[in-house]
Amino acid sequence: MKTLVRIGLILAASLVVIGGAFAYVQYGGNTLLASGPGRGEIFEGGQRPERGQAGEAFTPSTGGAFAGEAPPDFGGERGARREGSHEAGGLGGLTEVLKNLGVIAVITLIVAGIGTAWRFLSSKLRRPTSAVAPPAPPAQPTA
């Protein structure tokens, strides 16, 4: 029962986060996506010039005949996935795993290094105060 309550609390916290994500996508996500240079920002007056407007000769593409050869996989079964692609996966993607592992290792090295240096420095700073011996108690008269 206790575990179920805890799972419920975790789910509730997740729902709050998901609600926030929904709000972000609905109200903030699109503005963030469009914030880069693009539509209407890099062209004067917000108008993208079209080819041929400034008096240059413009002949629209007629979709000329393709003279080359089709790529090897082109005639394959519809929907077939190429090895190593995003959808099929493959050993080529191992670099992605290694890259992420490398990032984690570098962060760990940096943080662990800082932690070790901090402990070393704090122990060095603490040592002189602890090295001072407390005053000796007065000698007790023996019977």
């Binding site: 493959g90 993607g93 992605e96 795993v97 592992l101």
Partner: peptide, 15 residues
């Protein structure tokens, strides 16, 4: 997490 963050390795379905 390392495998899930590499869809090019696992493929989309496993990811």
């Amino acid at each position: 997490v390392l495998l899930a963050l590499a869809p090019n390795f696992t493929g989309l379905a496993i990811h």
